[in-house]
Computed example of a mutant assay.
Amino acid sequence: MTVPGDLVTGEAVALDIRPARLASRASALAIDLLIMASLSAMLGQLVQIIALYADEAVVAGVAILVTVAVFVGYPATMETLTRGRTVGKMAMGTRTVSVDGGPVLFRQALMRALAGVVEFLMFTGAPALLCSLFNRQGRRLGDLFAGTLVIQDRTPSLASYSPVAQMPMHLVPWAQSLELSRITDDLALSGRQYLQRFWELLPEVRDELGWELMRSFGPLLTPPPPPGARPEVVISAVLAERRRRESVRLSAQRHRREEHLRRIGQHVPADPPPPPVFQQRGPAFQAGLLPPPQFYGPPPAGSAPYGR
């Protein structure tokens, strides 16, 4: 399943990346413009010193060189050396990448920088703003010319509280009675990606994607989900039960292997400690201190529950 913001490479692989929002891009640009203005002012002092000892042609050449170095060389060099990031982008957690998701090349960074001189210095950013507003991925003219895209490289803190595959206590009896053999790995992966991105999506998008997923999950679940259960809750219960059964199966295999090693007199290696399931989501999730997530909205009008 792909969602808005996914990119698809030439090999038909969906890349789970999110285009940067206009506010993040504008803030990053403001920081970079402030840096470039500071560099221009400092180098301008050098031009004034040169003007005391050189003729006007030399001074004009040095001034042009300084302008190009600051407003073209700075963004092009930074994005090339840092794989798509300038100081402003680092601060706002954004990055420039190729449209296929690969790292930005020097020629692409140079094209963006040259187009930026026209867009921001000559026309005060109006072409970039209009193009970004009418482009689905927020690309400005420089991105269109260079074949690039600015993405959100650092996930907002709110995304760290996205629900993962946890078992709702009221669905434990139902989940333990499920027949899960028809749930494919691809479908389970789609469900997990939906849960991971739950809080990044707008409420209406959450609902639309959730009920779309349930039209795939629902017919494969026996017995069917309890009436009125939200799609994100049902998917979380299914994935948590699927993970539990897989853990039981692997534990049984490990136990049989250890018994076999003991019978033939070989050393049984100690199992490494399992990593915390929610380590990346902070101590509140590990301790179970967070309240249950607030879910949004009824199913779409006129649609049968879970596609049944």
Rank of each mutant, 00 (worst) to 15 (best):
E179I: 07
A175M: 01
V172P: 00
L189F: 09
P156Q: 10
Y161D: 15
L178I: 05
P156A: 12
L158P: 01
M167D: 01
L189P: 00
D185M: 10
S160Y: 14
L187D: 02
A165G: 06
H170D: 09
Q166R: 11
A175K: 00
D153H: 09
W174K: 00
V164H: 04
I183M: 13
M169E: 14
A175S: 09
R182E: 14
P156T: 10
R192P: 00
V164M: 11
G191V: 00
S162A: 13
T184P: 01
S181A: 15
M167S: 03
A175F: 01
S190P: 01
R192F: 07
Y161F: 15
I151G: 01
A188Y: 08
S190C: 10
R182I: 01
G191N: 03
A165N: 09
L178K: 09
R154C: 03
S160K: 12
V150E: 06
W174T: 01
Q152L: 10
Q176M: 07
Q152R: 14
R154D: 03
A159T: 11
L187Y: 06
E179L: 14
L187S: 06
V150G: 02
S160T: 14
I183C: 08
Q166G: 10
Q166D: 12
S177H: 11
L187R: 02
R182L: 13
P173R: 08
